[in-house]
Every structure is written in structure tokens, then in C-alpha cells.
């Protein structure tokens, strides 16, 4: 065989370009293996094309190295687990460049891009569903929160009222137990023999408390008024509140500088300057 002629024929260039069909390619490889000068020429041609390709060398963008290597690693691991028995891919030399007519119009095998697309859509749907669920839960929680807040406010105000009553009672108890207070029993006058009350008088602080045991109910527009008798003169010691009159609790009255007796009269609402003696209900002295 005339190798020089074969080399001149240009088939080696076509081989290097990958435009030969499979039979022709096998032929070239066989001859190259057989004749060193063909091999040498083919190497030279391939080297020339390689250099041409290499002349297009382009530094990949930053970050691509990591992505590509990670993707490669993922792909070979996946391949190792799912198809360990997969046949090795056909030698590259046999990879045929298909003519356009036989090239598939649509991609059959899903590319990485399509997978990413599908994954994105799936993630979007999942995310939307999760959002809906979370939105509903959030709404529910909000309703519950409002209810609980109302409840809490109610409990707090109740608590406050209880607290206030407790402090009142504690104060009353302190007054009752205090040794500084002198108790004056007020007995009913002939006008109201059943009436009974008590005055607690602190001679040091001049504080006066009234503790009603039993007082006749008053007509509309009337109120009990407490008087302190100081050297025979009545001194106004304040009006009794309705709750005090009913015997509900102790009531702090006006301070009284000095007193030898206390009495209560029925006066028009708001009180009078001087007591109406005829309506005196209870009286008591130290």
C-alpha cells in the first residue's frame, strides 16, 4: 500500500474532524495501527486541530469550578448507586455525528435544565401548599390570641377588684386589731331601740372609723351623719355611705380633734351644719 498516497488523500483530516462514518473510521484506525507513518501523520493532524481548539481556551467564570465539580460528583455517585451495572459508554471514537435529518427535534432525555425546571415547579407547588396551611394556622392562632387577650383582660380586672377588696379588708382588720383605736359602742335611742353601731377613734392620729351593726333603713333622700361631741358641741364627722349604712364595711370618717361622745342623726343627703336632734338614732360616749 502506498501510504504517502493514503496520507495525501485527505481522509486523515476528515477522521480528525469527525466527519467520517463508522466503517471509514475503523479503516483509518486499522491502517494507523499498521503503518507508523500514517499514525504519525494522524497524530500531527490531531495535534494541529487540538491546538486550534486550544487557541479558543477560555477561563471559565468564577464559581463554575465548584459547581461543575459538585455536579460531577453528584452525577457519578448517583450513577454508582442506581446503575452500577450500567455498561460503559461506547468509545468516543465511535460516537457518530448524526446528520440533521436524524437528529431528534425535541430533546428526549431530560437535560439538567429540565430537571431543574421540574424541581422548581415542584418546589413552588409545595411552597404554595405550605403557605396556605401556615396562613390558615396563623389565622386560627390570631383568633385564639384575641380571645385569650380578652380573657386575660377580664381576669386581670377581676384580680384588681379582688386585690382592692383585699387591701380594704386588710386595712379594716388592721384598724380593728390596732390598740391605738378606742372603740365606742353607739346604742340605739328610744327612736330606734334596735339600732347599733360602733366608732373606732384613734386619739393619736385623730382617725375615725364607723362600723355599723344595725341601722334602720332610711327614706329616699336621707343619709346618716356622724357627729362628734366635743365639750358638749356637735362637730361634723362626715356622712355615712350607703354601703357603710348597710353594714358592709368600715368607713373612714373625717378626722376629729377631740371627742367625748359620738352620735348619728338622719339628715338630708349631703349633710347639715347642725344636727337635727329629733332624728338622733344612736349615741355613745367613752
Amino acid at each position: 500500500m502506498n501510504t504517502q498516497e493514503y496520507i495525501e488523500s485527505g481522509i486523515l483530516e476528515e477522521y480528525a474532524l469527525g466527519v467520517l462514518d463508522e466503517a471509514q473510521r475503523a479503516d483509518v484506525e486499522r491502517l494507523a495501527a499498521q503503518y507508523p507513518e500514517i499514525r504519525q501523520e494522524l497524530d500531527l493532524i490531531q495535534h494541529g486541530l487540538d491546538s486550534y481548539a486550544q487557541a479558543h481556551t477560555q477561563e471559565p467564570p468564577a464559581g463554575m469550578r465548584e459547581r461543575v465539580l459538585a455536579g460531577w460528583q453528584a452525577a457519578i455517585h448517583q450513577g454508582a448507586t442506581t446503575s452500577a451495572t450500567e455498561l460503559p459508554i461506547a468509545p468516543v471514537a465511535e460516537t457518530v455525528v448524526r446528520p440533521i435529518s436524524s437528529a431528534p427535534q425535541e430533546e428526549i432525555a431530560p437535560s439538567g435544565f429540565n430537571w431543574m425546571m421540574a424541581a422548581s415547579v415542584a418546589l413552588l407547588v409545595l411552597s404554595a401548599a405550605a403557605n396556605l396551611i401556615l396562613y390558615n394556622r396563623w389565622k386560627e392562632s390570631e383568633t385564639q390570641l384575641v380571645a385569650l387577650q380578652a380573657d386575660q383582660t377580664r381576669v386581670a380586672s377581676t384580680m384588681q377588684a379582688v386585690e382592692k377588696r383585699l387591701s380594704t379588708r386588710t386595712q379594716e382588720l388592721a384598724v380593728l386589731r390596732s390598740e391605738q383605736f378606742k372603740a365606742v359602742e353607739l346604742a340605739g335611742t328610744p327612736a330606734a331601740p334596735q339600732a347599733k353601731a360602733r366608732v373606732l377613734y384613734n386619739t393619736a392620729t385623730k382617725a375615725v372609723y364607723v362600723d355599723v351593726r344595725n341601722l334602720p333603713t332610711l327614706p329616699q333622700g336621707k343619709q346618716y351623719q356622724l357627729w362628734a361631741m366635743d365639750k358638749g358641741k356637735p362637730v361634723d364627722a362626715g356622712m355615712l355611705a350607703a354601703a357603710t349604712t348597710a353594714g358592709d364595711s368600715l368607713q373612714l370618717m373625717k378626722n376629729v380633734a377631740n371627742a367625748e361622745a359620738f352620735a348619728m342623726t338622719v339628715e338630708p343627703e349631703g349633710g347639715s351644719e347642725n344636727p337635727t336632734m329629733e332624728t338622733m338614732t344612736v349615741i355613745g360616749r367613752f
Partner: peptide, 26 residues
């Protein structure tokens, strides 16, 4: 797309490395 293809190439080179025949070329 070049990035995708480069990655696919690495995978393919990895898997078909045994089919590389040094006598056929560099």
C-alpha cells in the same frame, strides 16, 4: 449551557475512561 455540557463531559469522561486507547491518540 456550556457549563452544563462541561459537567456532562466530566461525567462521561469519568465513566468511559477505560475506553480511552492511548495508541489511538493523545
Amino acid at each position: 449551557i456550556a457549563e452544563d455540557v462541561l459537567q456532562e463531559s466530566l461525567v462521561k469522561i469519568w465513566h468511559s475512561f477505560q475506553s480511552y486507547d492511548a495508541s489511538k491518540g493523545r
